[in-house]
Amino acid sequence: MKVASALATATLAIGALLSQGWTDGPHAATAPWAPHCDDGQRSTAANWAATGQFVTARVVTWVDGTGFNRVELRYNSAARCAWARYNGGQPAEVYLDRSTDGGAHWVGPKGSSGPARSAYTGAYNDYRPNVARACADYRGRPHCTDWY
């Protein structure tokens, strides 16, 4: 009898959780979600960078006769938005590419900025199915991060 009562209580508790929807993990509720950035907003990217509200999701670096060069794909996970940043020895144009099929095809450049020795793009929606990569056109040659 105690086992049946415990089982009934557990079943009710699980049913209550399911009716409310999961909040994370692979069984999360699929409520509509919208990114917290409008495509191309440089002020949003600048604010998140200034307040440390990002992770550096992907990086590509190279060294030449002018010094160390770095392209970063930065990402704000709460807003699900990404932007590109470049720092280097010579001016480069930084931009973002975005794909809906894992990088097989893409649209870009988006948010082109520069050429400058330090430049960044605005923030762009990176919510699925979107993936993004950061690129810098450096001396006529693109240097891009992996897709994220």
Rank of each mutant, 00 (worst) to 15 (best):
Val63Glu: 14
Ala78Phe: 02
Gly67Pro: 06
Arg70Leu: 04
Ala50Gln: 13
Tyr75Trp: 12
Thr56Pro: 09
Gly52Gln: 10
Tyr75Asp: 10
Thr61Tyr: 01
Leu73Cys: 05
Arg58Phe: 02
Trp62Glu: 00
Phe54Ile: 14
Thr51Trp: 09
Val63Phe: 08
Tyr75Lys: 00
Trp48Gly: 07
Asn69Arg: 03
Val63Met: 11
Ala57Ile: 01
Thr61Met: 03
Cys81Phe: 05
Cys81Met: 09
Cys81Asn: 03
Val60Asp: 12
Ala79Gly: 05
Val71Arg: 03
Val71Lys: 05
Ala50Asn: 15
Cys81Leu: 08
Ala79Cys: 03
Arg80Asn: 07
Tyr75Phe: 11
Arg70Met: 08
Val59Ala: 04
Ala79Trp: 06
Phe68Gly: 05
Ala78His: 07
Tyr75Thr: 05
Phe68Arg: 12
Glu72Arg: 06
Asn47Gly: 11
Val63Pro: 01
Glu72Ala: 09
Phe54Glu: 14
Gln53Val: 03
Ser77Lys: 05
Ser77Thr: 05
Thr66Met: 08
Phe68Cys: 11
Phe68Leu: 13
Gly65Ser: 14
Val63Cys: 10
Thr66Cys: 12
Arg58Leu: 03
Asn76Phe: 00
Ser77Asn: 06
Thr56Tyr: 04
Val63Tyr: 06
Ala57Cys: 07
Thr56Met: 08
Leu73Thr: 02
Phe54Thr: 11
